[in-house]
């Protein structure tokens, strides 16, 4: 967004650089239960994004003075691998950006997980971005919801997130890296599936009120598609034999 330049051509004949229409989302594949040592896990490949999410807990809260006697504490760590992206994006451990994303993702799940069921414990959500191509925070929320279901942590609802925005003067869904970097606006948004609550809403860049309304409609539509993908991934996993650790004997 820092390089927002109205002269950059991101649309051609109503199509985007990668051939998508303005409301298309990238190709997404979700896999459940890929890490036998975690309580729950999932992997997502969303266009060029590759993200692993592992969930641990509820377990003893450390440090102990951070424990809440009335509910579980949700902790989230978003990390980008040094080789995940161009330039300094994921270069050096925790930074301003990863701290922000950890916080916003944590807040999404704090409002979904039934934390009152597990007093004095913590629930950890670990998100490892292996490859980034724009929209990692929304992909992380989407995959973490699947990993938490896989861990059997009680949640009030499923959540799916998507980024919408404006590039080359058009309101579009699921921004790629180029559209994010050279577009006019980027709005990541997360919806809970059943009651459609907005659990995450950020905005970078500028949009008019009308454009934002249109963007939210597109986001809502896209989140329905994402919920379908999450459901299919979980169904595929749970309808077949699953879950056994392979012991080396």
């Amino acid at each position: 967004m820092g390089n927002a330049n109205p002269n950059v051509k991101l649309m051609k004949d109503g199509k985007r650089l990668d051939g998508r229409s303005s409301t298309d989302i990238r190709k997404i594949r979700i896999e459940v239960g890929i890490l036998p040592n975690a309580a729950g896990s999932a992997f997502i490949e969303w266009g060029g994004n590759k993200i692993i999410c592992g969930v641990q807990g509820p377990r003893e809260c450390i440090p102990k003075h951070g424990a809440d006697p009335y509910k579980a504490v949700v902790k989230c760590r978003y990390m980008m691998a040094p080789f995940a992206s161009h330039d300094e994006h994921g270069r050096s451990g925790p930074n301003r950006r990863s701290n922000e994303l950890s916080k916003v993702i944590r807040e999404v799940f704090e409002s979904l997980i039934i934390t009152e069921a597990f007093p004095k414990t913590q629930i950890d959500i670990y998100i490892e971005v292996l490859q980034a191509e724009g929209g990692t925070r929304v992909a992380a929320v989407t995959v973490a919801a699947v990993a938490l279901s896989n861990a059997g942590i009680p949640m009030k609802d499923m959540v799916s997130a998507v980024a919408v925005g404006k590039a080359d003067g058009e309101v579009i869904a699921d921004l790629s890296r180029e559209e994010d970097n050279f577009g006019q606006s980027d709005v990541p948004v997360a919806f809970s599936n059943r009651d459609g609550n907005i659990l995450l809403l950020q905005m970078d860049g500028l949009m008019t009120r009308g454009e934002l309304g249109k963007a939210m409609d597109i986001a809502q539509e896209s989140s329905k598609k994402l919920y379908k993908l999450q459901t299919d991934a979980l169904k595929e996993y749970y309808e077949k034999p699953h879950g056994a650790k392979k012991f080396q004997l």
């Binding site: 729950g40 509820p58 039934i114 279901s149 861990a151 059997g152 942590i153």
Partner: peptide
């Protein structure tokens, strides 16, 4: 009543959880 974890329903409509945290 809503489900809080992944599960399935049996013939009688009872909810059987497939994953859960032990209490």
């Amino acid at each position: 009543t809503y489900a809080a974890v992944v599960g399935m329903s049996d013939e009688t409509g009872k909810f059987i959880s497939l994953e859960s945290c032990y209490k």
